[in-house]
Amino acid sequence: METSDDAGVYRLNDQLALIQTLDFFTPIVNDPYDFGRIAAANALSDVYAMGGRPLTAMNIVCFPIRRMDKAILRDILRGGRDKVHEAGAVLVGGHSVDDLELKYGLSVTGVVSPGRVLTNRGARPGDRLLLTKPLGTGILATAVKAGLASPAAAQAAVDCMAELNRAAAEAMADYPVTACTDITGFGLLGHGLELAAGSGVRLRIEAGRVPLLPEVLDYASMGLVPAGSFANRNFCAERLRGSAAIDPLLLDLLADAQTSGGLLIAVPAAAAEALLDRLHRDGVSHAAIIGEVLERGSGMVELG
């Protein structure tokens, strides 16, 4: 039915389609248990972004078995397992190889009703845009690496990245959501532009309404912007409007590469406030309406 870089949908019958996704990466935090939780939340997110429900997951492990204490691997796997269970899915196995560099992730299988598959192609003019998690995990991870992040900000980033998009996905199911994508490596701007292009519309994002992790503007002003986020900003520049009128540090945040980011949701204006209330009620406390879908167009993002 649908494919993208790391997720595929296969229709089994009129009631059921299979979602398969896979994602793994190198550690982004120092604590092995947290890394496991974040990697799992990230891998599960692709299923949630499509409106699906994860059923099973398998571990993917690359581990330098001769150089690193096996206790580290145990903690990573425990973190991953705990998240998979929190998602209501089952960990059914996995595969590991000896590698110079540690990597961990999962392959996740989920289900969705074929008529309710959400993609980044359905947004319609007049829809409102919601974002369910604050931005800034890339910059904060860099600040942690530099030893400049405050413990509170570092913890906020870990909590954000380890949070499942489950509650957001379940809330979406009860509203006439037209399009959805999860915010990961290309940042809000990159994934927003994909959604705009996929739907053949223009988006307007109110930069001041976008939720941010604590202290991230401060870290951006110190030059703690990872290379990927810079690349995103430059890559998106041509298809943005209004970027000259907003704070350059805020622009860096909008382009910041996210790990296990939130969902960007398009929903008709009439349902937007109700969906937002529901998200807040269900513990998705940072969710915010950040903009709207403008007329049919060629995939631009307008900033205000």
Binding site: G223, L224, F230
Partner: peptide, 12 residues
């Protein structure tokens, strides 16, 4: 990117 980041860091 490195030029901009190092510049910001030093200015800061």
């Amino acid at each position: 990117a490195a030029r901009e980041n190092v510049t910001r860091f030093l200015q800061r």
